[in-house]
Design a protein around this nucleic acid. Structure first.
Length: 269
DNA sequence: CGAAAAACCTGGCAGC
DNA sequence: TGCTGCCAGGTTTTTC
């Protein structure tokens, strides 16, 4: 479920564990997107959590001599409970146990993943990722340059994590609405000016979503246990048949790359 | 080769 | 109520 803002919100909620001792990792179901390495517990047990960060939609735990790479997949979430709490919710798979509290990883669909590595930069999940959308590297000229030779539609293009990370299905539609670009337009058709609009729009939306704590959807809980009633105002996603907020024309829903795509056919050229 | 489709899973909901 | 089919925030793997 989580796109970049949701992952970022989750990260902020668990930042308080920085510099604490990771007493133990307990894994109750190793069958996630990939089978969790059988030595992971042994290698991460009783280490200092030196830092917590995010790269793309991955949450990175920096330990004394290794990195844990956690992805929440489509339906994963983290919650914080007291160390002595011994209840389980359905689909609780992993516990990261600290001195007084623990972080519990819950994921109904098990599309998420957990890896351990000594070298983060060269890890296969990390080494092919595009720039962070909120960094200066994700500029109009960059997008223009990489989009020249591609024949795919721009919506699919910006969801490709090799091109830019963190933009998922919701924010892809929302970004293109704000940029006034039709999602069906092929990427090489875009002018540099349009590329600039897209990068600006994506940054604007991601920032405001982070500000309010991520879009609230079915399975996402903020990790500090707050209910998550915050929500950014979505302009197109899930609004098919409803009037465009600008021109009142009905929002359309189509399928691109097997994903629901929403747009206003009048505002988005 | 790049692009499209299938695959990995479970749960919720609409429709019958 | 209960069954069936479809849909869901992601990303890799397989097929065309």
């Amino acid at each position: 479920m989580p796109e970049l803002p949701e992952v970022e919100t989750t990260l902020q909620a668990i930042k308080k564990f920085k510099n604490q001792n990771l007493n133990d990792v307990k894994i109750y179901n190793r069958n996630l997107r990939w089978k969790v390495n059988k030595n992971l517990e042994k290698k991460s047990r009783n280490k200092t959590l030196k830092n917590l960060s995010r790269r793309a939609k991955y949450i990175i735990f920096e330990l004394d001599d290794a990195f844990l790479i956690l992805h929440l997949g489509m339906s994963g979430s983290l919650r914080i409970t007291k160390k002595e709490d011994n209840y389980f919710l359905k689909h609780d798979h992993i516990e990261f146990i600290f001195d007084k509290e623990k972080i519990v990883y819950n994921d109904p669909r098990r599309f998420g993943s957990l890896h351990i590595t000594n070298n983060l930069e060269t890890h296969r999940l990390i080494n092919n990722l595009g720039p962070e959308p909120l960094s200066r590297n994700f500029s109009g000229s960059y997008l223009y340059e990489i989009s020249r030779k591609s024949n795919t539609n721009i919506k699919t293009f910006i969801m490709n994590q090799k091109h830019v990370v963190g933009i998922g299905n919701i924010y892809a539609s929302e970004t293109l609405y704000l940029a006034k670009i039709n999602p069906l337009k092929t990427s090489h058709e875009l002018t540099e000016e349009e590329c600039k609009k897209i990068t600006h729009a994506s940054k604007k939306i991601l920032k405001s979503a982070i500000k309010v704590g991520g879009t609230t959807l079915k399975d996402f809980y903020s990790a500090d246990g707050s209910p998550g009633y915050f929500k950014i105002k979505l302009n197109v996603y899930g609004r098919d048949g409803q009037p465009c907020r600008k021109c009142k024309k009905d929002i359309k829903k189509i399928n691109l790359n097997q994903r629901a795509t929403y747009f206003c056919s009048k505002c988005q050229i």
